[in-house]
Design a protein around this nucleic acid. Structure first.
Lengths: 216, 216
DNA sequence: TAGATTGTTAATCGATTAACAATC
DNA sequence: TAGATTGTTAATCGATTAACAATC
């Protein structure tokens, strides 16, 4: 590991999961060694960018050879903390919460859905993807009990801040927020916003310029 | 409008939907005028950034006064093309596709879900959020017929590329891809990847540094 | 008018790209 | 050894922040 005082940019952190996923695909194909050139080709990124990113964390490659796929997967996994099997909870079992609860890619990354919460008496007590749906009021008990440290917020925007407050009080350290609203959280809680309106809106922006006229 | 040769950065485009949404909230509160200072406070961004972004498209404010909320909403909406009511289709009505089909925020942004597609005989012919679920093989007919220009891909990664190819052949101009794989599309098709593994992985990264030890 | 706030230019900061020595 | 490829420094590019004249 390098000097801890170097601050790693968000751009770099966001590329690591891409490297990780692609390397696992490469490994499934049976490749044992890969160059930054080939990895970059598969991801759609320059090899220089990959080498630069990785070099911030250590020397993982072999000059004249490339990167050992298995080793690099392990190294990136440890950088991202994916070897730790985090317990997560989803708050708000509506359409989106339900979908995320059933999303298989998370468990393959080391995230373990330990509980979900809602207020709807019609679903509280049932299970989603074999995980219990608790009432929101059980958060304060269940979260510490199950060592849950990451909370996923998929409730309507108007309830998101109070849910965040309660999650934090219950001991959550990271929040993945899907509600379209700005949340205020203490500095020591990591907040990541997943804003689904950006992707679609930006497509609209580019298409507007490509397809003149107001039809469609 | 400004000189069309100025290229607007992706960072700026991605902030516009945020401005748009926040301004609509502000409007609901009954405010008619807002300063970049106050808007920035609500979004969590500097006022300079907002003024800079907006100035790339025109002069929307009044010096010494601020921005008229209604006018700015209209202007940003037109910049993003949100006044055009785009027809979209979702391909893959699994958990995620189902959730997106039921996501109400899209229609409020001017996106109209006109069709969904799947291959599962158990659901083809049914409806989701009152929209028909067609068989994938009807894509080539339904997409031009319904003037659909944006496709949302929520199929498993191994089918994503062939779905993209068929969407494009059918006339799609923009793709919003949720499958965790790099898609190859022609230059004139706008591709936006929504990578759900990045958000959760980056939380893991930051928590690893904050919570030493391998427990949880 | 005086105070407030925009729009824009200049300065700074940060990230990407290019180049190449080191070395497998 | 010769060829290939990394790790890293330097150069470039781009985005954000600061400052302030213009003006409502």
């Amino acid at each position: 590991m390098k000097d801890q005082h170097i601050v790693i940019s968000k751009a770099t952190i966001d590329r690591l999961p891409l490297y990780f996923r692609t390397l696992r695909n490469v490994q499934e194909e049976g490749l044992e060694i890969i160059s930054s050139e080939e990895l970059g080709r598969r991801i759609g990124i320059t090899p220089e960018q990959i080498r630069k990113d990785l070099s911030l964390f250590g020397e993982f490659g072999k000059k004249g050879v490339g990167y050992y796929v298995r080793d690099l997967i392990r190294n990136i996994g440890e950088i991202l903390g994916l070897h730790r099997n985090w317990n997560i909870a989803i708050v708000g079992v509506g359409h989106l919460g339900w979908a995320l609860a059933n999303y298989q890619n998370f468990s393959s990354l080391g995230f373990n859905l330990a509980a979900t919460f809602d207020v709807d008496p019609g679903i509280v007590g049932a299970r989603v993807n074999d995980v219990p749906i608790y009432h929101l009021d059980e958060m304060e008990r269940v979260i510490p009990e199950k060592h849950i440290v990451i909370g996923v917020i998929t409730v309507p925007a108007e309830f998101a801040q109070q849910v965040a407050n309660r999650l934090i009080k219950a001991g959550i350290r990271g929040i993945w927020n899907f509600a379209p609203i700005k949340l205020n959280v203490p500095d020591d809680v990591k907040l990541v916003n997943e804003d689904l309106s950006i992707g679609l809106s930006s497509i609209s922006y580019y298409l507007s310029r490509q397809l003149p006229g107001d039809k469609y």
